[in-house]
Design a binder for these strands. Structure first.
Length: 479
RNA sequence: CGAGAAGUAGCACAGCUUGGUAGUGCACCACGCUUGGGACGUGGGGGUCGCAGGUUCGAAUCCUGUCUUCUCGACCA
């Protein structure tokens, strides 16, 4: 069988999901390892996805008044140490610069693992009056965390992200901003990445180091494990007190502003792979795919075919559609597989058989549906097909998510569900961290993913200790 | 950071037990032939065998150390 070679190349999703993931990343040429553990090259196909994510999110941010800035990569030790919870949270994984040329530095500098401290320093210098508020900033950058176990996109030492940092006059305004940004992430991830999520608040033990409240969107991967896809934090005035950020209010009194931060990283690319990918490789949602369609001429030595292929290519380009054309002398099967492994949402096959009938064949990557379209309709039909594909991909992922949400009313049910199934398990919780720890230990690693915004009461008692329940919690095993 | 596995050409591997100067398939280059699911033929280029020490006349092969990758844990976005 001609296809066997190709099938060998990617491990089946159901045989070994972890190996499948690595195979897809490699075969789709998204990234490459380097000689530094956990640091990777984002190759053109992978970086283009990130560029589209940036473009799309950045526009949404700016529509709400966000301004982009850029902070230094280095943070002096003394500055990092100002907020106790924060430094304790990050200390184990920061890298330090101790030499400048040949000379030891008087104070060592950490390579940013996140930039709260730098933003606070900046805010402290520039904030005077309530009239200066709010300050709503974001930066696109890379950060470094000395991870011990690394995987492409999911956990690397250096990764790309955006981190938003804002300060506000009132806690209400800051809380609104926290929620507003989570809404943006939710909307972006569901509509543009076609990834359905559950969302809500993190428990004390899972929240960001130094935050008063952390909100999250959590996606479910094809293997039933959860991936925290974006977070938004409300800081209260804890950071601004620690960093002495203050302003004079309307009553001529010094007060501390209220603060937020929020971020989304290249990790989301891992989610795209693990939610939509299949045994033939990557499947990119049309909204985020760098190339929307690959034109594949069949029998390219025939000038009349090339002529039609080039004409369609030019027309699609003219209407702003990013498409590519495969003019190599590979066999059609090779070209098909190549387009599929890269996750390009559609291909346009143009061969002798098509030309006889005055049509081309458009093939969807997600379900391989073949659609015959007359030559003159390609430019109008292709956008419709992509639109439908985007919807269908979301729907399919949504069904997967919903069919992998379970309920547990007692510890046995919880343990059994995690033993037998994979996905989210809803259960009531008393609010005690000891119960979270016990659940984690007894289920083989399930943690609280979030307390959903739309809490339902499925029981009166904590699933673990049996005391009065305070919250409904989604538990899951996470990446 | 703990447990396991692995590093030999771009990729996947063989060779190692029993030391003697490196091979196969795919990919790549040239030419020919071919094109509706990873064709074929002929010829060609490419490797300080992860790195560093050691043993030896001689090391891909034996010994020690180290780095990296993968899997599973603990930790984290």
């Amino acid at each position: 069988m001609a296809n066997e070679k190709f099938l060998d190349a990617i491990t089946s999703r159901d045989v070994d999901f972890a190996q499948w993931y690595t195979d897809v990343v490699r075969k789709a040429k998204l990234c490459e390892y380097t000689s530094i553990k956990g640091c990777m090259v984002y190759m053109p196909a992978g970086y283009a996805i990130w560029e589209n994510i940036q473009k799309n999110l950045d526009a949404r941010f700016k529509a709400t008044g966000v301004k982009n800035v850029y902070m230094p990569m280095l943070i002096p030790e003394s500055l990092l140490n100002k907020e106790k919870d924060h430094v304790n949270g990050f200390a184990p994984e920061v890298a330090w610069v101790t030499m400048g040329g040949a000379n030891p530095l008087e104070e060592k500098l950490c390579i940013r693992p996140t930039s709260e401290t730098l933003f606070c320093e900046h805010f402290a210098k520039n904030l005077n009056s309530y009239r200066d508020l709010p300050m709503v900033y974001n930066q696109w950058c890379s950060v470094l965390r000395w991870e011990k176990t690394t995987r492409p996109f999911l956990r690397s030492k250096e990764f790309l992200w955006q981190e938003g940092h804002t300060i506000h006059e009132t806690s209400e305004e800051a809380k609104d901003r926290t929620k507003m940004m989570l809404d943006i992430y939710h909307d972006f991830v569901e509509n543009d990445l076609a990834i359905p999520v559950i969302w809500g608040q993190k428990t004390e033990s899972e929240k960001f180091a130094g935050a008063e409240a952390t909100y999250t969107i959590e996606a479910l991967m094809h293997d039933g494990k959860a991936l925290q896809s974006a977070t938004s934090h409300y800081f209260g005035d804890g950071f601004s007190k620690a960093f002495d950020v203050k302003f004079i209010d309307k009553n001529n009194k010094y007060v501390n502003p209220f603060q937020t931060s929020w971020g989304l990283s290249t990790r989301i690319i891992g989610a795209i792979i693990m939610v939509h990918g299949d045994d033939d490789g990557l499947v990119l949602p049309p909204h985020i795919a760098p190339i929307k369609s690959m034109i594949i001429p069949i029998g390219h030595n025939k000038p009349e075919i090339l002529e039609v292929a080039n004409k369609i290519y030019d027309e699609l380009k003219k209407q702003g559609m990013v498409v590519d054309i495969d003019l190599s002398d590979k066999t059609p099967g090779y070209k098909f597989s190549n387009q599929e492994v890269q996750g390009i949402p559609t291909r346009i096959e143009i061969g002798p058989r098509d030309l006889e009938n005055g049509v081309v064949t458009i093939v969807r990557r997600d379900n391989r549906e073949k659609i015959s379209i007359s030559l003159e309709d390609v430019t109008t039909k292709l956008p419709e097909i992509l639109k439908q594909m985007q919807k269908d991909m979301y729907q399919k992922a949504k069904e997967h998510l919903e069919s992998h949400i379970y309920e547990a009313h007692n510890m046995d049910e919880l343990i059994n569900t995690f033993n037998e199934k994979s996905g989210f398990v809803k259960a009531m919780w008393c609010g005690d961290e000891a119960c979270e720890d016990e659940i984690k230990a007894k289920t083989g690693g399930a943690t609280s993913r979030c307390i959903p915004f739309n809490e339902e009461g499925i029981s009166e008692k904590c699933v673990c200790c049996g005391k009065d329940a305070k919250h409904l919690v989604y538990f899951g095993k996470a990446y």
